[in-house]
Design a protein around this nucleic acid. Structure first.
Lengths: 241, 241
DNA sequence: CGCGGCTTTGATGTTCATCAAGTAAAGTGG
DNA sequence: CCACTTTACTTGATGAACATCAAAGCCGCG
C-alpha cells in the first residue's frame, strides 16, 4: 500500500533494445529535447506491461518515477468519501495522465488501472526534473499538456453532470465508439459496475438503460459485445438527454 | 464580447508607484526570479480594480495578458450546454487561477467575476513567456501551481457531487466561514442564485434548505447576514449529508 | 454441486426539479 | 420622493428521475 505498484510488479519489466523512435520522436513533447537527450531517455527508460485489471498506481502511493502510457487504455479514478470509486477519465497513449499529480505532491492523487493490456514507459523522476531545468521549452510543453488534460477533465465532468442517466450512457457509448475504438461494434472494456462509476450512477440503472436502448433498437448488446445500430438517435440522446 | 474586459474597463487602470514588495516578494512563485527581474515586473505591471459583480474575463475571450489576483475574491465559472452557469471554484489571492487556461489555448476556458472588490495585476503575456524560457525554475513553479489548482478543483467537485443538497449547503457555508472569512458571522457574498450555481442545484432548494437550517437552529440568517450557531451539527451534515 | 460474484428485472420510496404564486427589496423615471 | 417596474427571495404543491431494496437467473470456479 505504501510502495508503488511498479516495485510490486517488477517481474513485468522488459529491458528492450531502444526501438522507440516511432513513439518518442512522433511525440511533440520530446521535440523540445536535443537528439542526444532523447536518445538517452530512450536508453534509460524501462517498459512495464500490465494486464487488464492490473493496478498501475494507487491513490496515495508515493511518486517515485515518471511514466507515460505507451499503449493500451487505462482508467483514472479517485475514492470518494462514501467509499465509492469515481472514474475521472479514460486515458490513452499521449494523454500524459501521469502529469496531473506530479510536481506539487509527493503522492498520487489518483488511482490508475489498466482496462486493456497496456505498456507504460518509466523514467527516473530526477532525470526528468533535471531535463526540465535544462530545457525550459520542454517544461513549457509539459505545462501545456497539464492544462489541456485538466481542461478536458473538467469539461467531461461538467458535461456528464448536466445530463440525465440516458444521456450519460449515450455519452460514454459514443466516447468508446468514436474516441477509443473507432468502430460501431466493439467490446465494452469494463463491467456494468465500472461503467456506473464512470458516470456516477447505480449499476442497476446502467443495466436498465442499456436494456431500454436495446428495446428501442438503438443498440444491440449481449454481455460486453455491443453494436451501435442507430448512431444518430444515440447522439441526440447524448446531447439533449 | 470578442475583446477582453481589460480593455473595456481601461478606466480602472491605476498606474501606481512600485509598492508591491509585500505582494510579490512574499510570493513563492517570484522567488525563482532574480531581484532585477522581479523589480522590472513590478514596474511593468498594471493594477486593475474591479467592483463586486464586474466581469474580469469571459469564457472564450482571447488571452492577451497574464494576470493574477492581488486581493479580493472572485468566482470562476463555466457555461453548461443547458445555458446554465456552473461555478467551479472561488479564488482568492495567490490561487493563480489565471493559470488554468494559459499556455495551451488562445482563449479562456472559464469566466471570472469579482464577487468582492478585487485588484488584479496585469502583465504583458509575452514578457512572462520570455521569463519562462529564461528561468526554468520559474516555469516549474508554475507547473506546481497549476497541478495544485487542478487537484483542488477536482477534489471540490467530487466532494460536492457525492453529497445531498443539505450536505452541499453545509459545505459551502463552512467553506465561507473557515476558508474565506475566518469567522462564524459573515455576509454571504453572493445571491441565492449564485449559491445554487456554486453547488449545482436550484435556487428554490437553496432557500428551502437555508430555512431548514434556520428552523433547526443551526444558523441564524437574515438576507445575506449569516451566523453559524451550531458548527458541529453543520460539520456533521457536511460530512454525512 | 454449491458458493460468490456479476447481471437482470420489478417494486417501492426518497430526493430533488419544476411549476405556480405571492412577498420583499431594489432600481428607474417622472 | 413616490409610483412603477423589475429583480431577488420565499413557500407550497406536484411529478419525474433516480436510488434502494428484493429476488432470481447466470456463470465460472473450487
Amino acid at each position: 500500500m505504501n510502495k508503488t505498484s511498479f516495485e510490486i510488479h517488477t517481474s513485468h519489466i522488459h529491458n528492450e533494445s531502444c526501438n522507440c523512435e516511432a513513439c518518442i520522436l512522433k511525440n511533440m513533447l520530446f521535440n523540445h529535447l536535443p537528439q542526444e537527450e532523447a536518445e538517452k531517455l530512450c536508453f534509460i527508460k524501462k517498459e512495464i506491461h500490465f494486464q487488464k485489471g492490473e493496478v498501475i498506481v494507487k491513490e496515495n502511493d508515493p511518486i517515485e518515477y515518471f511514466f507515460y502510457l505507451k499503449n493500451g487504455l487505462i482508467k483514472i479514478s479517485k475514492m470518494l468519501d462514501n467509499n465509492k470509486q469515481f472514474i475521472l477519465m479514460l486515458a490513452r497513449p499521449h494523454d500524459y495522465i501521469s502529469l496531473l499529480s506530479y510536481f506539487h505532491k509527493q503522492h498520487y492523487s489518483y488511482t490508475m488501472i489498466a482496462i486493456e493490456e497496456s505498456v507504460i514507459c518509466v523514467f527516473p523522476l530526477d532525470h526528468i526534473q533535471n531535463l526540465m531545468i535544462s530545457y525550459p521549452e520542454f517544461t513549457v510543453s509539459f505545462l501545456q499538456k497539464v492544462n489541456k488534460t485538466a481542461d478536458h477533465l473538467i469539461e467531461r465532468f461538467l458535461t456528464i453532470n448536466s445530463r440525465n442517466l440516458r444521456g450519460r450512457i449515450a455519452l460514454i457509448l459514443l466516447e468508446l465508439s468514436e474516441k477509443i475504438y473507432h468502430a460501431k461494434s466493439f467490446e465494452i472494456p469494463f463491467s456494468r459496475k465500472e461503467m456506473s462509476e464512470l458516470i456516477g450512477m447505480t449499476t442497476e440503472n446502467v443495466i436498465r438503460i442499456l436494456s431500454e436502448f436495446k428495446n428501442e433498437n438503438i443498440i444491440k448488446i449481449s454481455g460486453k459485445e455491443i453494436e451501435i445500430v442507430n448512431n444518430d438517435k444515440l447522439k441526440f440522446i447524448a446531447e439533449h438527454g
